[in-house]
């Protein structure tokens, strides 16, 4: 079995993506961070490092695990759950 990328893995999942973004970055706090733990602890690769060393976040593939919320010590993540009925919808679990 060849190595699979996270985005390809997420592509097989069932999501009901809401128009509302459930996780927001607090830009000021995020800017002052050079650890970028979010890049590693997010199992869905929702956080990316931008060209100017800024973090960007895309909520669509979020598996709602809460890792980023717990790990970020800059308090830079406004973390909520997607609206009820939206987000990841596991068919196996």
């Amino acid at each position: 079995m060849s190595t699979m990328k996270i985005e390809d893995k997420l592509a097989v999942n069932k999501f009901d993506i809401d128009k509302d973004v459930h996780i927001q970055l607090k830009e000021e706090a995020c800017k002052n961070c050079d650890v970028h733990s979010c890049l590693y602890v997010c199992p869905a690769d929702c956080f990316k490092l931008g060209e100017s060393d800024n973090i960007t976040f895309a909520y669509e593939g979020c598996l709602e695990c809460g890792s980023c919320r717990i790990v970020c010590d800059k308090d830079a993540i406004e973390w909520t759950l997607p609206r009820a009925g939206f987000g990841i919808c596991y068919q196996y679990g």
Partner: peptide, 21 residues
């Protein structure tokens, strides 16, 4: 990819990727 593991997965189809704390 571990040789002891890989042969058990051969030709399998990945149908879900999940994560939890």
């Amino acid at each position: 990819q571990h040789p002891e593991v890989a042969s058990f997965l051969k030709d399998g189809k990945m149908v879900e990727y999940s994560a939890h704390l």
